[in-house]
Design a protein around this nucleic acid. Sequence first.
DNA 1: CGGGTATCGTTTGGGCCCGCACGAAAAGTC
DNA 2: GACTTTTCGTGCGGGCCCAAACGATACCCG
Lengths: 190, 190
Amino acid sequence: MTGHHTLQETEQAIQERLGDVPLRHDAMMAVSNIYRAAAAIRQHFESSVLRGADVTWTAFVVLWVVWIWGEMETRHVAEEAGISKGTLTGVAKTLEGRGLIERGSHATDGRLVLLRLTDKGQELMRGLFPAFNAEEAFVVERLDEDDNRRLARTLRSIIEHLEEQGDGRRAALRAESPPPPRRSGRRSRS
Amino acid sequence: MTGHHTLQETEQAIQERLGDVPLRHDAMMAVSNIYRAAAAIRQHFESSVLRGADVTWTAFVVLWVVWIWGEMETRHVAEEAGISKGTLTGVAKTLEGRGLIERGSHATDGRLVLLRLTDKGQELMRGLFPAFNAEEAFVVERLDEDDNRRLARTLRSIIEHLEEQGDGRRAALRAESPPPPRRSGRRSRS
DNA sequence: CGGGTATCGTTTGGGCCCGCACGAAAAGTC
DNA sequence: GACTTTTCGTGCGGGCCCAAACGATACCCG
């Protein structure tokens, strides 16, 4: 994950590259470590518990959401799972093909699609989730309960901050310099 | 990110689903918040600073690594960037096509490939990195410097723990129940 | 009722992501 | 020198990921 360079070496190399520009090192280390930790965690789960069930991280999260909340509209599943609705369409297709979830339609609103676990999916989650939680405990093995709670609380404040202020911040940045259209995405047939 | 369910509702729903099985809630909240925060952060960066330069998160990380360390062997770039070498091949191809990096070969070891920034790549990073750091500061705006340092330190201990113990743990788990081959990956032509 | 407008899930295009199987090259072994 | 083993980057298959464009449905309003 961190490679063979120490923190000190990295900091020094950055300073050489951008000598005079003032940087927020504390923010840099906090943010980059969040991402490094998340990648390491995902990697660990995918190559341990999830590997055994032949389920990807994202597929597991989707299964988890539907398992906890029962039958659910796809837009809510995507929101809870933290993926776009377009991505969910693909993931749901994969899971449906493996017989773990099934789709239903809403009684009164014809646009909506509902997702729910099949019996096979229920059975999978019943066995998988305890194993998953055991790995979560392994990941934070070096921390005590107070550390975990403090960590969760700190991260939660970051998440909430981005939820509440992120849109505004992005809009303000766009106002300064309007962005180019994304390199990918469907082309307008003009 | 969190959807419209509160933490309490979620906890209660989990408890109903898995009533008698003892769970490590503190570990669950800590780990899941790491991942949620990482996703929110990546999302914020991709749709703000990186969007303006038409660069994905991963592409930026790769550029950053090569920028900081100068000419570098691909295996080390992949390691520092936290991606597999197979992934790096594709990302490097994209960046090379956009004229941001170039490849070179090692003087004595014919297997190695070296990556370095082009002038255009240097110029891009010189402008992009300060903007990136400004967003990092925005992300942790609600925390003070001590919070950031404590957060970084806590996360670092998780990362190191996974680096040091992860392999062993995964091997132990595999020994209990051998995993199936991964659903994807090149097929053996048997 | 009839015509906008908003919202749903899906499709599409481009890109990242991994693990595995290569072939090439190096390093070790005799 | 010939043989084996290791390590390198790459090719490939399958899957996730997003933004934008869409068709279908529902809602709003006169």
